[in-house]
Amino acid sequence: MNLIIRQAEEKDIKPMALMDVLCFSAPWSETSFEKEIRENHLAFYIVAEVDGILAGYAGLWCIVDEGHITNVAVHPDWRRRHIGEALVSVLLEHTIANGIKSHTLEVRASNEPAISLYRKFGFEPAGTRKNYYEDNGEDAIIMWRMVE
């Protein structure tokens, strides 16, 4: 497997939106990804390619010295191959090198694989957002990670 992680480009917008439909019950629209990639100067998105095929992506907003992870997605065909782990690792390394001192995210309370992944990187639960997800009213766990 030849895995390449690189910064997302405009050509990735449509594949990212299609992947979101496969990965999430409340996917982002193609327009949302367009705004993130083209217009949001606080946003930093990366993609994972395996032999030229988009296998995953991750994004974050840099707000002063804080990184808010917005999305981490791995195509169902490419799961359990450490691609999500590689994406989070690169996202953290890049943003820490550029002055981010803490990272936060929300994750579905039922998403044990994601929670486990984030814990590997030092994220800890810090609270709950009740009824956060509009599609089913599920709670979100707020997780934080501080740069040491």
Rank of each mutant, 00 (worst) to 15 (best):
M1I: 10
L3H: 11
L3E: 12
I5D: 02
R6C: 07
K11W: 08
I13C: 13
K14V: 14
K14Y: 13
P15T: 11
L18W: 00
M19W: 09
D20T: 09
S25V: 07
A26E: 15
P27A: 05
W28H: 10
S29C: 12
E30F: 11
F33E: 05
I37Q: 05
I37Y: 03
R38H: 13
N40V: 10
L42R: 06
A43K: 04
F44E: 06
I46P: 06
A48D: 06
E49P: 02
V50F: 00
D51W: 00
I53N: 10
L54S: 05
L54V: 06
A55E: 08
A55V: 07
A55N: 07
Y57I: 05
L60D: 04
C62Y: 00
V64L: 14
E66N: 06
E66F: 05
G67K: 03
N71I: 11
H75W: 06
P76Y: 08
W78T: 00
R80H: 14
R80P: 08
I83A: 04
A86Y: 03
L87W: 00
S89V: 04
E93A: 11
H94W: 15
I96T: 12
I96Y: 08
A97V: 06
N98L: 09
G99F: 00
I100M: 15
K101T: 13
K101M: 14
S102T: 14
S102W: 12
H103I: 10
H103C: 09
T104R: 07
A109K: 10
E112W: 07
E112H: 14
E112S: 14
A114Y: 11
I115L: 14
I115K: 15
L117A: 01
K120L: 05
F121G: 00
G122K: 04
P125Y: 01
R129G: 10
N131C: 07
Y132D: 01
D135Y: 12
D135W: 10
E138I: 04
E138Q: 03
D139V: 00
A140P: 02
W144G: 08
R145H: 09
M146K: 15
V147T: 15
